[in-house]
């Protein structure tokens, strides 16, 4: 059985839980008390990931750190539709990687602001917010014109990819770090669409977009 080293309030762990849920995969959760326990820095977890970062996924003999690496692996191995990470489409793979890198930037900015405001991490919240707004601006413009071209998603024309899942959590949690989405209407519409993907699940701070879900 797949095993996930997980923390409820982590957006990067949530990305992985999202894809696991959408693909309908069973998995075992191993909770690592990131806050306030700081157990990701304890020797026991450093033996699993020397970088001391969540999440980590174990599947058989494979142990993977880095949420985006895990998304790539899960989609390539378990997604029968071949849509979440279309390995045969070079251009699309390039685009997906480009947005996974932007998602990495969101972790360094929007997520950092959230850790500084909500969990007392010693980051420069103001600088983090400024960085987040720059990325939001790029994402909003991209999505606005994607809509004009008739596409609802960041990369592929007709369906979401792991790029959407990678960008979603720290966009959606941004207000906890004082980053407002008021000025980014195209982003807000896209987050509604992500929430309506079949198999979508929530985490603390992220509400469903429809009743009864």
């Amino acid at each position: 059985m797949i095993k996930l080293y997980d923390f409820d309030l982590s957006g990067n762990c949530y990305k992985v839980r999202l894809l696991l849920g959408i693909l309908g995969l069973e998995f075992e959760r191993k909770n690592v008390d990131f806050f306030p326990g700081f157990k990701h820095r304890a020797a026991e977890f450093l033996a699993v990931n020397p970088l001391g970062q969540l999440p980590v996924l174990e599947d058989g003999d494979l142990s993977l750190r880095d949420s985006h690496a895990i998304l790539v692996y899960l989609a390539s191995k378990y997604d029968g539709s071949g849509r979440w990470y279309p390995t045969g489409d070079a251009a699309l793979l390039g685009e997906i990687q480009q947005w996974l890198s932007l998602a990495e930037g969101l972790t360094a900015t929007a997520s950092a602001a959230r850790l500084a405001e909500g969990m007392d991490f010693d980051f420069d919240a103001e600088a983090a917010r400024k960085g987040a707004y720059r990325l939001f601006d790029v994402l909003d413009e991209h999505l606005w014109f994607r809509e004009r071209e008739g596409s609802d998603w960041i990369c592929a024309p007709a369906h979401p990819t792991i790029a959407d899942l990678a960008c979603f959590p720290y966009v959606m949690l941004s207000e906890e770090g004082g980053v407002s989405r008021e000025d980014y209407p195209a982003i807000r519409r896209w987050t509604d669409r992500v929430k309506r993907i079949p198999g979508f699940s929530v985490m603390p701070g992220i509400f469903p977009a429809q009743l009864g879900s």
Partner: peptide, 13 residues
């Protein structure tokens, strides 16, 4: 708002 801001079942801020 733009008309296109009001997607089906969306609430625009």
């Amino acid at each position: 708002a733009n008309s296109t801001d009001l997607a089906p079942h969306h609430v625009f801020q």
